[in-house]
Design a protein around this nucleic acid. Sequence first.
RNA 1: GUGAUUGUAGCUCAGUUGGUUAGAGCGCCAGGUUGUGGCCCUGGAGGUCGGGGGUUCGAGUCCCCUCAUUCACCCCA
Length: 426
Amino acid sequence: MPQYQAVKGARDIFPEETARWKYVEGVVHALAALYGFSEIRTPVFEYTELFQRGIGATTDIVGKEMFTFLPDPGGKSLTLRPEMTAGVMRAALQKNLLGTAPVHKLYYISELFRKERPQAGRQRQFSQFGAELLGVSTPAAVAEVITFMMQVFETLGLRGLRLRINSLGGTHDRQRYREALQAYFSPYRDRLDAPSLERLEKNPLRILDSKNPDMQELVAGAPKLYDYLDADALADFEKVLFFLSERGIAFEIDHRLVRGLDYYCYTAFEVTGSELGAQDAVGGGGRYDGLARELGSSADVPAAGFAAGMERLLMTMEKQGLFTALTPHSPLVYVVLQQQEFSDHAMQVAFRLRKSGISTEIDLAGRSMKSQMREANRVRSSYALIIGENEVVTGQYTLKNLVTSEQTALSLETLLEILHEPALKE
RNA sequence: GUGAUUGUAGCUCAGUUGGUUAGAGCGCCAGGUUGUGGCCCUGGAGGUCGGGGGUUCGAGUCCCCUCAUUCACCCCA
């Protein structure tokens, strides 16, 4: 075992895998542009207080999953960001973005940190791509955010994803419902498991998505959030669903869907995949009108957004065989020299090729010609450019097609012309 | 944070009831004559058997601790 290992829950991504990341990131960037979202990058750490206020002090994220540290004695506590929304909202408020235009559409691909026990689809450092639409949270806005997310999944070729959606109502609706739930569950205290008992006080909504089978019966009889929504909330929800239907986006209404973060209100949604194991959420989001005020804004900032887990996305794509078409980049030409005495000459030829835009590889270790040829083959170079005594004397280099094994003698000028033919680069 | 699981070469794995210099396939490296890859052949490098302690004449094999992995719970992307 090596003396040093990557930190628990953090991993290295090597070139083969990097290609996949770049592919997925490329799709995200392209579709963001299509939908009019602009990229924002915020610091990886923030003052701890931001997350305590923004995400909610009673949530697990804030309660036990943050990497928090003191940069210097007496300084303010800092935390590695466990999610993006609070930081993006902070940035928007700090710059008074909404003062420059009423609506801002932002997206990101960023690393996040959560101190959880690693398992399938969950690590301590992970990436999400997501979008935040600030300034409006109309059904059209919420639908836009969901549509953007779903189109990314669709473009990547993902199959079998489930989009579940629910309305949490406004704060007043939720308050009434909360009380109703407490009233319902309180008589059954002895039948609730430990976690549910704790939620009864803190956040009774969360009892609803308990995975404990013993709770199912009890949960099934609980009052439905849907019955506590007022007319406006219902109309709002219906409109969101209408937009999704119009766009052919399949969804399931799930009245028990409750998102974990405190700032969500009205529409909340989640996308799950069947190939991920226990951590099956690929993406999720919702509307969070109250967050800005929570962070000290004097005015409400209507907003909606989503976040999707890059690792889980990649994992699902891998399982569904969506990366087969991705081939590693290989050089067009591998410069092979017969004897070391021609090394300087060969180096200069390689340089000329590269300078003119032809991807070229050449041995740097002084290995034998046989080794160089093997290497050329191994890296799947299309051509070997052989340089030996004859070539140096005559100025005619030997170009060998490594697929057909044909060889031709060419001057450097002709070589550059031929290698620039688009057909050869395929 | 809780529970379970696994830990032998770069990778996938063998290693008999504890018994001499720990193996295979793939990969890697080098050769297979005088300037040429893929296939094939030959050879080679590479492991403190996760780490530490213990039992034993003797431990990769047994016991304890520890670290890491994986999976699940909690929660979330």
